[in-house]
Nucleic acid binder design. Structure first.
Lengths: 347, 347
DNA sequence: ATGAAAGCGCTAACAT
DNA sequence: ATGTTAGCGCTTTCAT
């Protein structure tokens, strides 16, 4: 196969110097319109395509960006990746995607790979607790997700958990559910603390003792939600059990546990999710949930990165609002007894 | 911030020449063990990390690979991406991921980006019908998915649709369903023809007239499956309606349509899916389906690419087997009347 | 086994 | 507006 044509071939073909040809190809420079046309034509004829490696080497701009997320196969993160990808592609750049699997070492190794590829910047959902790790990263980066709150000095994008929790609790209250049980993530995750704090705020404003809420912990998986729900069903006091889950997967697991226990949703139990994964639309009943703007999160993170690189001001941490998706997993308890939770069911 | 250390800094620190230092860092070369250690230590002390742009430029090996799929936000393709990613990362390389959205132009533009980034090779699920497009691609590549069959001369990986369809039809037969209705993809897709051909083969072996099967077309979406199912329900002849869908999303849509029409699954209708998307596990009843080995598909495609690059022989087109996942969307009609389809229900 | 020197393809001064 | 020259950081002959 013939050697790839270089800028020199193009220059020769167009009858100009190497630099003129280069200038014509990177349109920004000051070149005569006629010359530019001539060069463009020659480039097309030769089948020339700029070598980004060489460009990056000389100019320091590789046209490469990095994305490190826990798992691209997780629908939420896939959406985030898609958002970032779209914006990066719009800037004629490319995105290197890595999955860390919530693993410290893997994360570190991916960050190293990004540095070696000389990416211009990266978007990272950090696994690490250590600020040092990122201090040493040595590249412009934007954090994404709740754990980014550990790094207050770094630009970051996340969903507004406080607003989301209040949205959920307000809706629950409107439907007549006063003090839902909670299925939360592991104690180690910062997102859990954020979630719980917002619940407490909400309760205190309404003179509900936060300590009266049943709280179960799980690991954000369907199985975890399933067993957490089993525990809640065992210790259940009220006739109708309402559960607010910290993510959709656990909520789906909780619904399955209820069904296995012979309880019907939403007649006997109500479940509210958090995330907005597609699967929630196919469960029966459909999962009412609070949707995080995943794709927008990715978009905005990429945007923030480009802003940062362009030297534009950054507004530190940005929180994106979530929205409620009503499907059918919540009972309407209003008509029965507005304040007291009694035997549920509609009408 | 201080300038990034180069191989020259390391060489100076180790008291050797540039080339010796480079050799020590790219371990393959013949260097004295003691020298290598010395250089390694110096590199660590200096915080040196190889510049892959420079390496790629000089050696022609960029350490970059490309993946072009329809949509990373689609769970199936996300799994494929994950598989490819894992294998590429295991080779100390990085993966550039692009979503084409089944759009010709976008695909072309992404391929151009890959060429400019000087990827060593790419994995592509082609949108294009034209072989030319890829002939001009000018890079080693591996195709993935059914439409790859348009390119018989190119190494490609796909799931074994023939085996999958037979697996499904055999299982259906065992459960007492003799001639299922079909909800297929658009007529333009090669996968549809593949699917249909396998169904015909199966029918002919059993003296069933393929023309007697009801066939509906949809666009692989939930909404498409929903309306296709509505059409089937209208024209329904037998007491129990069995549908084999060409993908899970349409199957999920079909189940919803049945529910809306007041038909219970699996008592009144049976639905068999194809893909193995996570959402199928959460529907009620759970969707019985044929799972494609998505992650393995990605892995194997990447493997094939590396084999190709290493000059190892390629076995042309590879078909990966699918497996049946039994959940609860299929009625057991055996006990009622093994041959004749009558009013369904279990036991 | 190591060093010296050339050069990958491009851009960024510096000339003109 | 265009040409000339140097050099980004590395690998790779070719010496030694």
């Amino acid at each position: 196969m013939a050697r790839r044509p270089t800028i020199i071939d193009v220059a020769r073909l167009a009858g100009v110097s190497k630099s003129t040809a280069a200038r014509a190809m990177s349109d920004s420079a000051e070149v005569n319109d006629a010359t530019r046309e001539k060069v463009r034509k020659a480039a097309l004829a030769a089948g020339y395509e700029r070598n980004h490696l060489a460009v990056g080497m000389r100019s320091g701009r590789s046209g490469l960006f990095g994305l490190v997320i826990p798992d691209i196969a997780n629908p939420f993160w896939a959406e985030v990746a898609r958002g970032a990808q779209d914006l990066v592609a719009a800037h004629d750049a490319s995105l290197l995607v890595f999955s860390s699997d919530w693993d410290h070492e893997r994360e570190a190794s991916h960050l190293r790979a990004l540095r070696q590829a000389r990416v211009e910047g990266a978007i990272v959902n950090p696994v690490s607790d250590s600020v040092d790790e990122f201090g040493r990263f040595g590249l412009p980066f934007v954090l994404i997700g709740s754990s980014a709150e550990r790094f207050p000095d770094t630009p970051s994008i996340g969903s507004d958990i406080r607003q989301a929790v209040r949205l959920g609790l307000d809706h629950l209250e409107q439907m007549g559910h006063r003090s839902p049980a909670l299925i939360l993530g592991p104690k180690s995750r910062l997102a859990r603390a954020r979630f719980l704090r917002s619940v407490h705020e909400h309760c205190l404003e309404r003179d509900i003792d936060p300590a009266s809420l049943s709280v179960e912990s799980a690991d954000y998986t369907v199985e975890g939600g399933f067993s957490a729900m089993q525990r809640l069903l065992e210790q259940q006091r009220d006739a109708h059990l309402t559960v607010f889950c910290a993510n959709d997967l656990m909520a789906l697991g909780a619904m399955m546990a209820a069904r296995v226990a012979g309880r019907e949703c939403p007649r006997d139990v109500s479940v509210l999710g958090f995330d907005g994964v597609p699967a929630g639309a196919f469960s029966w009943p459909g999962l009412t949930t609070i949707e995080k703007p995943a794709r927008e999160l990715g978009r905005r993170a990429a945007e923030a990165l480009f802003d940062h690189l362009a030297g534009r001001a950054l507004d530190g941490r940005t929180y994106l609002p979530c929205r409620l998706i009503e499907r059918g997993s919540l009972a309407d308890l209003r008509v029965v007894t507005p304040l007291r939770i009694a035997g549920g069911g509609r009408t």
